[in-house]
Design a protein around this nucleic acid. Structure first.
Lengths: 351, 351
DNA sequence: CCCTTTATACTCATAATGAGCATATTGTGG
DNA sequence: CCACAATATGCTCATTATGAGTATAAAGGG
């Protein structure tokens, strides 16, 4: 009954290249993450648009030149290396955004379209001396994501009330949003209300929720009607905004990294060659934005075979000296999915 | 110490558009999956190149026209709808490939570059009447992935011996591959040898392993030296090859879907409105390529709150009639990660 | 009415997990 | 030197999740 997917649609790739309306430029965005002083840091570059977003952080960005680099990742590594001298360890593709409205201030020339491919990269080195670029604590952009000291006050003081208001007001809701309590459910699941457990991996969903609720400066900048008040009044802001959709890319990176850490030994990309279990734990906690039970963390790491003792003791910092461990790289060849299987808190998840 | 990521690199997006060497065409590839008769099917279109790959299946492909569609997904849905009349339920971006060598037969014109974005889509409808397009059992492309009837014979009869040969021969190994037993470890982990458990989610890794080992026709077509013998002799083939890197995209889709099914209720996208638990189980088993314990599957599905009884009984097919269930869509609003948490078999995983 | 076939309900041993207690090893300030 | 603070590390225990099996129910066919 249906029309066949016509073969021409395949061959048309060739013709399409000739047609300007389909040609685009590929941009590569890198969310480069490190952890220092037990804080996750994201590499940002300043930018100065005359559009009111001057001063907003941006993620490093570079074009992809297919003539020069065989793959997207090679292209990314190349310009990151050139511009920052950073040694990227782990690199992972996140998502490709093709939104026409991405550069929302109509800075695009007619006929120009940037499709951007987001990448997550991890690095151990974190010199503070890169001119122009800087390491920014990622929780400055996402203050609601750091639960290490308990629930961040911003959630109950600002986010929940504002979201409740948004959920109550149905006037600006889209058709499918109007389903009874849809908005309320979304906020319950995202922010762990009414007995729903906090899920550290939902960083992206939370960002998107706040964006649709018009609570972020990016939403105002993009012209979302329900966010315009942010520009007028001196409304308090929810986290530091970023250029373009970079905060969204960062949220994607957070979600992905928090998930990955649990079934791949990526955390070790951020550790020095030897470390104490305490240091490892603090690094993981920093990324997850959560506290974990110390003794159980140790048990987990040890009988997952992820580390081995070095015999050396650390110069202690207060109490009994801790032993230094090293990452057992062999584990990659032994088990199918080695990682810090930190199960989502079962408490309250099921009520 | 490092150079700043220069702001110009950001603004250069604008100039870059003008430079032909950076302009590319975005192609969208769709892995459209359905399940009928308890077999996973992939929508393929024929193609006729005069390059020897005529007759190989291809995934439906369409260009992305940024003037016409706001986002990549909208663009994808649009041409899929147009060409196939299929109603896509779940759609998810998989990966973006920018390899210059993607269209390996140098069919690219100079100055033309296709970056392709792969998508996974699920649909319930599976008319057999689409002209040109056809539903192909996906295990025809990946015979080693179907363990429902036990370990597929092709593994022990062909794959393992050929991989052992490849692992033993170090002559064509890349520098980092030369590490003692690297290749052997890779095959152990991928194909579950020596007590390593089979991991259904490693479909992509297995495909890539077979490709690098030169055992797939795609590798031969791409000019990999270690695969050239496939073209000469009448060597038996490992699964049906596909055009371009489409089999790789399909492998990505399989891996992603098999993983996703365990923490998101995507399986229901493939079910009719009401179904018996047996039908649900068979569908899941088809996707995973595995048998699951019937009673435990039932327990899992039921106390995860994923389904609810309808009271209606099915017209049985042999024994006691089974009750019809329906998907409890509300579960999406209740639990953070509802899915069929089929844990990886613990047996043999840890020896 | 027995037998086959499938559906569904329970049981049970084992492993994984969350939480806490106990002990060890350091430095510090009387 | 000793009590004490601080941290590391080892161990126990209750609870839950999981894999595997047994038992019973409800149909149709001879």
């Amino acid at each position: 009954m249906a029309e066949a997917p016509s073969k021409p649609s395949i061959q048309s790739a060739a013709e399409a290249a000739m047609r300007a309306d389909k040609a685009v430029v590929i941009g590569l965005n890198a969310a480069i993450v490190t952890v220092s002083d037990y804080e996750p840091k994201i590499l940002v570059v300043p930018h100065d648009e005359a559009d009111g977003t001057g001063g907003w952080d941006a993620l490093p960005f570079g074009p992809f030149n297919p003539m020069q680099h065989r793959t997207l990742e090679i292209g990314l590594r190349s310009w990151v290396q050139e511009q920052t001298q950073l040694e990227l360890g782990y690199v992972e593709q996140l998502y490709t955004f093709g939104d026409r409205g991405r550069h929302s201030l109509e800075i695009e020339q007619p006929g120009e379209h940037v499709v951007s491919v987001g990448y997550l990269a991890l690095t151990r080195s974190h010199d503070e001396t890169m001119k122009g670029a800087a390491w920014r604590d990622w929780y400055q952009h996402f203050p609601w994501e750091d639960w290490r000291e308990g629930k961040p006050p911003i959630i109950d003081q600002m986010i929940v009330p504002l979201l409740r208001e948004w959920a109550a007001k149905q006037s600006d809701a889209s058709p499918e949003e109007l389903a009874r309590g849809k908005r309320r459910d979304r906020m319950r699941l995202c922010f762990g209300i009414d007995g729903v457990a906090w899920d550290d991996e939902k960083a992206l969903e939370r960002y998107e929720l706040l964006y649709s609720a018009g609570l972020l400066l990016e939403a105002a900048r993009d012209g979302r009607p329900n966010a315009q008040h942010l520009l007028k009044g001196k409304a308090p802001q929810l986290g530091r905004p970023m250029q373009f959709d970079h905060r969204r890319i960062l949220a994607t990176a957070m979600s992905r990294l928090r998930a990955k850490i649990k079934y791949r030994p990526v955390a070790f990309e951020l550790m020095p060659p030897t470390f104490t279990l305490y240091e490892l734990q603090k690094t993981v906690e920093a990324l997850l934005g959560l506290h974990v039970h110390k003794q159980n963390f140790r048990r987990l790491v040890e009988n997952a075979g992820l580390v081995e003792r070095t015999g050396r003791m650390s110069t202690r910092t207060g109490g009994r000296p801790a032993e230094q461990f090293r990452f057992r790289r062999e584990v990659l060849n032994e088990r199918p999915a080695p990682g810090l299987r930190l199960a989502p808190s079962r408490s309250r998840a099921n009520s």
